[in-house]
Computed example of a mutant assay.
Amino acid sequence: MVLREWARDAHATVQAVRAAVRHVADDPSSLGDDEWLALLGASGAELDELCALADDARRTITGDELTFVVNRNLDTSVVGSGRPDVPDVSDLVVEAWELGATEICLQGPLSVDAPTDGYLRLVDTIHAAAPQMHLHAFRPPEVRDAATRMGVSVTEFLRRAHAAGLGSVPGTAAQILDDDVRAHLAGGAAPPVAEWVSTIEAAHQVGMFSTATMLYGHVETPQHQLDHLRALCEMQRRTRGFSELILMPLLPENAPPHLREVATTPVSRRETRAVHAVARLLTLGTFDHIQVAWTKHDADTTEALLGGGADDIGGLLIDGDLMPDAGQEAGRVLGVDAIADLGARLGRNPRQRTTGYADPPAQRLTPIPQVRR
């Protein structure tokens, strides 16, 4: 694979970036690949100007709100294990509901020895415990695993799961929508792009929505990033089924062993700001919401991204008392005080939303502290 920064430097001359910034300010829809690639390499004053343009676009689309959802992450393999040391999933869901959550997010696959219909049983159990709770679960690999275990098509599993109470699916595992990059990330064979696309579109077709994601900061080039964003836009135009776009850097501690020499340091703040700003401007007309993956960034970078094109900060990831170590992002809880302070610094009004960006019922609203501006 081409080294990423070398590939970017070829496009990132100051003159090219300045010209691209002027052009994107006039008409983002008319930019060609070379100009978008130049913007991905922006730095210094040009990067600041690019981010300001992206934030203007954000303001036009979503106004001056800072949205968030109250949710709880659970590890699918843990809560579906039936182990005596793990609280019943119903109790975990009820506790989350009592703490104010409107969403349960399941992450990861079931174990190989789980029941054939284990995924569907989890949906039934969670929906029965809290019928008004939105269930956001099962990435494309888990959807396909569930369909294979049950001996049905992907579409049929999704239809049954949706009828049982599954509300939406995470669009993670997209990585970069390029078969060569995906194979390199996997250290060899990897599920092809076509599988991810067809699974997500099947979810949209049976009446569910999903998130859209991009994993950057590994072996991909700026051209791969650009092609990935364009592919997501094409899918959105076909199905209108994506609720938001989430851009996630590969953290060194999460890099597979064969990539440890590549992903030795976190992705630069410069690149992260440029990627988010370009994503906002390139997806105008297709994506309304750009979410900051706040668990992947330090607080200053999160704030910079929300001031550079992103409008949403995602979930609070509440824990509770029963099993606070459940989920891949255990211990990463965002409090409403922090949301209020962040909104004050950004000049934005915090607003609680549902998974689908609607207003929660009044009785489900989490009190937000009043702050001085």
Score class of each variant (00 low, 15 high):
2 V>E: 14
4 R>G: 08
288 D>L: 10
64 D>S: 11
137 A>S: 06
78 V>W: 07
131 P>Q: 03
361 P>W: 02
275 V>W: 03
44 G>P: 00
260 R>N: 11
47 L>D: 01
25 A>C: 09
164 A>T: 08
362 A>K: 12
60 T>G: 12
86 V>W: 00
268 S>E: 09
1 M>S: 15
42 A>Y: 03
170 P>A: 06
111 S>F: 04
78 V>A: 13
291 Q>F: 07
107 Q>G: 12
167 G>K: 01
203 A>M: 05
214 M>C: 04
60 T>C: 11
295 T>M: 07
304 A>W: 04
330 A>E: 11
23 H>I: 09
372 R>P: 03
371 V>R: 15
80 G>Q: 03
350 P>V: 01
365 L>K: 11
6 W>L: 15
168 S>R: 13
225 Q>R: 15
247 L>R: 01
50 L>W: 00
308 G>P: 02
198 S>T: 14
239 T>N: 15
207 G>N: 10
114 A>K: 09
156 E>W: 00
334 L>W: 01
266 P>W: 00
219 V>I: 12
86 V>G: 01
251 L>S: 08
171 G>H: 01
108 G>R: 03
21 V>D: 06
257 P>T: 13
224 H>D: 12
177 L>W: 03
78 V>D: 09
338 A>Q: 11
330 A>H: 09
366 T>R: 10
201 E>W: 03
244 E>S: 11
278 V>L: 05
102 T>L: 03
75 D>K: 11
207 G>M: 04
161 A>G: 11
70 V>Q: 01
29 S>W: 09
343 G>C: 00
166 L>I: 08
113 D>H: 14
319 D>M: 06
123 V>Y: 08
297 H>A: 04
253 E>M: 10
262 V>I: 15
164 A>P: 11
243 S>N: 13
157 F>L: 02
100 G>T: 01
225 Q>F: 10
48 D>V: 11
144 R>H: 02
267 V>D: 05
1 M>C: 13
363 Q>C: 13
127 H>T: 15
142 E>V: 10
211 T>K: 02
318 I>V: 14
310 A>R: 00
115 P>M: 10
124 D>H: 15
359 D>T: 12
104 I>Q: 02
291 Q>R: 15
51 C>M: 13
349 N>K: 13
20 A>C: 04
61 I>V: 14
295 T>H: 11
201 E>F: 09
279 A>R: 05
331 G>L: 00
42 A>P: 06
189 A>P: 14
340 A>H: 06
373 R>C: 12
224 H>L: 06
318 I>E: 08
213 T>V: 08
259 L>T: 12
174 A>W: 04
65 E>V: 12
318 I>W: 00
142 E>L: 10
288 D>G: 12
252 P>T: 08
175 Q>E: 15
293 A>H: 07
129 A>E: 00
16 A>W: 09
55 D>S: 07
308 G>Y: 02
176 I>L: 10
127 H>Y: 11
33 D>C: 06
